[in-house]
Amino acid sequence: MDKNTPLSSFSKWISPIHFKKAFEQTENLKQDYYTKKLTTEAYIKMLLFAQLHETESLQAMSDALLDDDFQKTLGFDSISASQLSRKNNEVAPTILATLFLDLVCQIKAFHKKQPNASMPLKVIDSSTLPLNLTNYKWAKFRKTKAGAKLHLKLVFMDKHTVYPEKAVITPAKEHDRNQLEILVDDKEAMYVFDRGYVDYERFDRMTDEGYFFASRLKKNAVIREVHSFSLPPESAVLSDKMVYIGSTQNRAENVFRLVEVEDTKGNVLRLITNRFDLSADEISDIYRSRWAIELFFKWLKQHVEIKHFYGMSETALQNQIYIALITYCLHVLIQLETKSKRSLLRISRWLKAALWKPAYLWLRRFENQTVP
């Protein structure tokens, strides 16, 4: 781009990405050794453009290069779908994973600047992405089905801002509990996860090692009450107890806290935690924050392209998922930089409308904060 040309909205949006880091990894891995024009950097920019527009195929991505501004951004005027396919299967997912984690660090820097920042709330869950067994035999997990699973740790800053902090991509047959050891790594955080992660031995280990958590017990879980705590009259909690959990054959050695609450449908939820310093209502509110990760997965599936994959290899699939996570993080960084209360969907729509226009025209839309 000419130095006298105003920065485009697209260039502003991707500016937090440290392409220098990607270039260093690319050099070490010799990813662009025989590449003439579709470098790893150009590939990343094309994939980000495709995620933003929810482009469903490599051919559609190739056709998008009819746009003069897109050509100027990439430095070439055409690329075939077959070339894109080869690059998609060649780029090491570790490169995109590194860029994703770097963006996470930038988001954390904003978080740390917040006055009176409390212990971060980190929600853990997974989402299965269904795949065609004929094309994705490496991801088989049932007789007639294939799938990949995105295991995720999401940081809940407040109701306006959440962001993915760590991701693990596996075939769908991988059990959620196996990833808990990888995703729980911060003793200065409070972890929240659903009953699919219940493991008494791991609960003991987390407690002994100083990790805090809140989870939901299965309906058939055996409990033995040690003590019942009194509740304030205005509390929405049904009961608050100190308990041992598990049967004689399978039990936890530590004592835990059991908080019973009703969900919106009137069903009783049994919440288990190793936090005794919070009120029962605070424990209930913390667990309700788990829905943030459900909304995150819903956002990904509706507003970026992870329903149609551009390649059938494990490498291609991982690259596309990391690009989707990078897209989300770039939206969050703009939201934090502009101190906007706008939804990420609104931010994305404005960006697409002003993609090749000067960035200041896009950013000007954030100045009026009266409309959500």
Rank of each mutant, 00 (worst) to 15 (best):
S228F: 00
L29S: 03
G75I: 02
D32V: 04
F203L: 14
R349A: 10
Q335A: 04
P93D: 11
L271Y: 02
S230M: 05
N254E: 05
N88V: 04
A252F: 03
K112I: 12
T40W: 07
A236L: 12
W362T: 03
A81Q: 15
E165G: 14
I321M: 12
P120Y: 05
K108S: 12
D77N: 15
D67Q: 11
I107W: 11
L131H: 07
P372V: 05
S82Q: 15
N28T: 00
Y328V: 04
R257K: 07
L295P: 01
K339P: 00
S313C: 06
C105T: 13
D263K: 11
Y322L: 04
K36P: 02
V261D: 01
D263G: 11
C329A: 13
K187C: 10
T5F: 11
Q369F: 05
F193L: 00
D204A: 09
D185A: 07
T273N: 06
I223A: 01
T315C: 08
T315P: 04
I293K: 00
R86W: 10
Q302N: 13
F110V: 00
K36V: 02
T73P: 00
W291H: 12
G147W: 02
K301D: 03
V261Q: 01
L344S: 06
F309L: 07
S78T: 11
H303V: 00
R288S: 07
Y33A: 09
K30F: 04
L351S: 02
